[in-house]
Design a protein around this nucleic acid. Structure first.
Length: 602
RNA sequence: GCCGGCAUAGCUCAGCAGGUAGAGCAGCGGUUUCGUAAACCGCAGGUCGUGGGUUCGAAUCCCGUUGCCGGCUCCA
């Protein structure tokens, strides 16, 4: 029995093998409610669309979904209120939800098939040996609906008090694009109405932080039809933010023993034959027909170039590791439906590096990279999730090397005390990898940093170094990025800061606001002094009211507003206002020295 | 690429039982000189994404196409 303590001192008991008590705000308690709500939703959909077949309906982080195959109808937003209404009816009927062990699988299969529930039948066949259970909804003791399900479920539908259908989407059966596309409804449910309301408010607020929305307001970037999808125009403000980040990146890499290189944007197809990209990456590459039988390719990766730089001289074990970095702009023909603001584009700059080292060095090199990732994310106040992907079925290289590499990656993560999730078999064919994922405003995750071992390219390019004993050995190679791409990272940062960049990144650090025209002259002198001090300051000398200037500055999320009127001139000072409100009067000298020292802090 | 939705001025949006476009903000020209989130008046801005079709007549209806949005798949 699971006991869930509900709002207002009530409680509900859930049939289960486990014995425990949960609070209504616990994830596990929410999952039970949401799962039952998913069943109610599925039943409602089948009432409204009798030809609908049900597939799967799991709970997810902030809600649940259910997939349907509806041959004679396409679900759209207008259907959602109707389905919600039907769900309310079901809740009013206060259906009992009861577990029923499937004693005769064959009989149940026949029943599913008879009703055309082919997806449930397929699932039942797989679970046949695992004591599958059915959850039956009934009214007045009469069964009205059932679903193959592991449970647990709430005992009666009356407990469903706060739910909302959010959107519709297409989704492949079993997540495989070779399968039929089903229709999915995303929804959420909470035990308490206030919790639902709070969640919906959160979603609204999160939408305002969307970097694509903020871009209009703050003039950050644009993507124009005339240029092409997924190709970013960086406007001055965001270009400035990027410049600051790149400056950090360069100095940090130099500190950490990297060399920085530059390589071309295009190369002969032949280069990509050597790297092997033409074989498996063809669909993503842009080909340029420069001359007949001499095709050039717009680079989708920087690695081959770095291989060749490595190869241009001989190295001994004493020279390794070589850490070769580049802010390299690559172009990949991403599928049209996957593009997304700055987060998923077709032309982007990777903060790429390739580390060439010996077998004995790669664990400590991985360690170093993890360190750099963690150090960097902390500067920006970003939190991340880590995933380790291991050897896939199709792979190159020796199994011992894979095992050693995977163990090395794990060891490095564990030594740093970083929590991670293992994605078994999800590594690249050329090596295992660690991915660092950032969340956007509404909780979608985007891969940023990644560390990948490569057992393929060094031998394809025939890279060598001389060992102590004079023998020629192939170095181990690591691909790694810290930001991932400048586009995606800056997009994530914009959402993280909600557009209000910290002082060291802010394109404009302060705006001077003279109240009336007679204050402009003094404001100009302050402006000049601040400029000389290296501050990024603007003078708003428009013929507008002070309130209007403040409003504009607030909306532009400018860090400091410095108001100048009669009193300030008298005192040789400015009235400081931050984004949060008024912050007292400071003398000119004070303001300048404060801002200068504050701007140094990252 | 796939499923669904959307596309009207620089931005946000109204107009859509078919009768050749409208507001606010931004911009420009004036007036105003102001104490912590919008001073006032005026002017100018759109062949309604694009190509076809239906119709006497299309922003509005139909089809194609491009782009965007939400997902799926794939990925930095």
């Amino acid at each position: 029995m699971i006991k869930i303590n509900l709002p207002h001192g009530n409680s509900v008991e859930i049939e289960s093998n486990e014995n425990k008590e949960l609070n209504y705000s616990d994830r596990e308690a929410l999952d039970i409610l949401r799962h039952t709500t998913a069943h109610v939703m599925a039943q409602a959909v089948q009432r409204l669309f009798p030809n609908a077949k049900i597939a799967i309906g799991p709970t997810i982080e902030n809600g649940f979904y259910y997939d349907f195959d509806i041959p004679d109808h396409s679900l759209n937003m207008d259907d959602l209120p109707k389905i919600e209404e039907e769900m309310q009816k079901i809740i009013k009927e206060n259906q009992k939800v009861e577990k029923q062990v499937i004693k005769n699988v064959q009989e149940q299969l026949t029943d599913f098939n008879l009703r055309g529930e082919v997806y449930k039948a397929e699932l039942l066949m797989e679970y046949a040996q695992q004591n599958p259970t059915l959850y039956v909804c009934s009214v007045d003791g009469k069964a009205v609906w059932n679903d193959l399900c592991r449970g647990p479920h709430i005992p009666e539908t009356k407990y469903i008090k706060a739910f909302k259908l959010l959107n519709t989407a297409g989704a492949y059966w079993r997540g495989d694009e070779k399968n039929k596309m089903l229709q999915r409804i995303y929804a959420t449910a909470f035990w308490a109405k206030d919790d639902l309301k709070a969640y919906l408010t959160f979603l609204e607020e999160a939408e305002k932080r969307d970097h694509r929305k903020l871009s209009n307001q703050l003039e950050l970037f644009s993507i124009k039809d005339e240029v092409g999808p997924g190709l970013v125009l960086w406007h001055p403000n965001l270009a400035f933010v990027r410049e600051q980040i790149e400056n950090y990146w360069r100095s940090e890499h130099r500190k950490r023993g990297y060399v920085i290189v530059n390589t071309p944007h295009i190369a002969k197809k032949q280069l990509w034959d050597i790297s092997g990209h033409t074989g498996f990456y063809d669909d993503n590459m842009y080909y340029l027909n420069v001359e007949e039988d001499k095709d050039y390719v717009l680079k989708p990766m920087n690695c081959p170039f770095h291989m060749l730089i490595y190869k241009s001289r001989r190295y001994s074990y004493r020279n390794l590791p070589i850490r070769m970095a580049e802010l390299g702009t690559v172009y990949r023909k991403e599928r049209s439906g996957t593009l997304h603001g700055l987060s998923r584009v077709r032309g982007f700059t990777q903060d790429d590096a390739h580390i060439f080292c010996t077998q004995d060095q790669f664990v400590s090199e991985i360690h170093n990279v993890i360190d750099l990732v963690d150090y960097t994310m902390k500067i920006f106040g970003l939190t991340y999730e880590v995933e380790l992907s291991t050897r896939p079925e199709k792979f190159v290289g020796e199994i011992e090397n894979w095992d050693k590499a995977e163990a090395g990656l794990k060891q490095a993560l564990e030594q740093k005390g970083i929590e991670y999730q293992i994605n078994e078999g999800d590594g690249a064919f050329y090596g295992p990898k660690i991915d660092f994922k950032l969340k956007d405003a509404i909780g979608r995750t985007w891969q940023a940093a990644t560390i990948q071992l490569d057992f393929n390219l060094p031998s394809r390019f025939d890279l060598k170094y001389t060992e102590k004993d004079g023998s020629l050995q192939t170095p181990v190679m690591l691909h790694r990025v810290i930001f991932g791409s400048m586009e995606r990272f800056v997009g994530a940062l914009t959402e993280h800061y909600a557009g209000a960049f910290p002082l060291w990144l802010a394109p404009v650090q302060a705006v001077l606001i003279p109240i009336a025209d007679r204050h402009i002259e003094f404001a100009e002198s302050v402006y000049n002094r601040m400029k000389e001090a290296g501050l990024r300051v603007e003078l708003d000398d428009r013929s507008e009211s002070m309130n209007s200037k403040i409003r504009d500055a607030q909306n532009s999320k400018i860090f400091y507003m410095l108001v100048i009127g009669d009193k300030e001139i008298e005192a040789n000072a400015v009235a400081v206002r931050t984004r949060k409100g008024q912050a007292g009067v400071q003398s000119i000298d004070e303001v300048i020295s404060n801002l200068v020292s504050e701007a140094k802090n990252r």
